[in-house]
């Protein structure tokens, strides 16, 4: 062990440890919000999104992020909302 290693160890010993609980809380809030968002949606939604994407891709050149499928629930009906951003096409 070099002298600097030893010195670092001594410094580390006296340093106040970082408050990790704050990080735990921040990380939990993010991941749980994400998981709750996915949890309430039907399992078929990602597959539906992929199929719609495939159909559109047959005609237009788009990428994955250009199609968004949302399912909203209101009282006794569900609304499927489809959002497609088409690339700007130059008309001759």
């Amino acid at each position: 062990m070099t002298f600097t290693d030893k010195l670092n160890k001594i410094i580390h010993y006296f340093q106040r440890p970082e408050k990790t609980a704050k990080r735990a809380k921040d990380r939990l809030q993010i991941i749980i919000a994400h998981e709750r968002n996915v949890r309430d949606k039907p399992d078929y939604l990602p597959m539906l999104q992929r199929d719609i994407l495939d159909v559109i891709a047959k005609y237009v050149n788009i990428n994955k992020d250009d199609v968004r499928v949302e399912l909203d629930r209101q009282d006794d009906c569900s609304i499927l909302e489809l959002n497609v951003v088409l690339p700007h096409v130059e008309t001759a």
């Binding site: 408050k19 609980a21 809380k25 939990l28 749980i32």
Partner: peptide, 16 residues
Amino acid sequence: RVARGDMLSLSDVNEI
């Protein structure tokens, strides 16, 4: 450990 800041507190867990 909560006071030391290295364990989630009751209010942290409650909030989540």
